[in-house]
Amino acid sequence: MINVYICEDDPKQLTQLKHLVTTAIVAHQLDMQLGLACQKPAELRQELQAHRPQQALYFLDISLKAEVNGIELATELRAQDPQSKIVFITTHSELALLVFKYQIEALDFIIKDAPEALAPRIERVLQVAQDRFAATATDVNDYIEIKVGPNLRTIKVDKILFFESSANAHKLILHLDDGQVEFYGLLKEVPALNTAFYKCHKSYVVNLNKITGLNKALRTLTLTDGETILCSLTASRYLVKKGFGH
């Protein structure tokens, strides 16, 4: 059962949202219930302290007229429960703001200036949330979590090429299909995160699924994006045994 929470400071919009969410749950027979609909973050915190939900979905207004805004509240909620899903309710002009989009990995942004589109959008996002929870329950192995600066990031193992230790002792560089992310961590702790990770060199942990070639003479591995990384002697022997390098 997924608990749905709504926090929106405008009473009229709050009632509307509450109504839309409950009707969608009933209409599509979703495995969800409305936990609380409130105007103040404090009320939400109290409720969460009393009943800690297993799976939670939050609808948060970005500009709450309270001591914290929606983004800060979301950060707080995520810190307590990294698995929780968050949907932001926002105005069009707020959505244009870049900062909001990247700070929290939000499930969706719902624009409240367009009331006619609200109902289908909420139905869809509830459905998506349910699917995601179902998926994470079975495929925990497909994702890893790392802390990048202030944010906890969920990253698909599928997108990871390799981890590299940087010249700086505390920093690791995570190489993805579409970019690079630095974070604080230890390379020796990386292989434990997923079975596909293998420490192929003192400064590299590679995702075994991304190796396209092994050069035994130069002791290098070629990855799907064409980059080559170093590979130790023991590792190259291990990888040959595993059937790489043909």
């Binding site: 990247y102 990048v148 940087s166 010249a167 700086n168 970019g179 992310v181 604080y184």
Partner: peptide
């Protein structure tokens, strides 16, 4: 620069047609 500063973290992404850099 990022390498020599312990307190700096860089993220570089190509998200579709967007190029994003984030310096923490």
């Amino acid at each position: 620069i990022v390498e020599r500063n312990d307190q700096m973290i860089l993220e570089t992404r190509q998200l579709g047609t967007l190029f994003l850099q984030q310096l923490t």
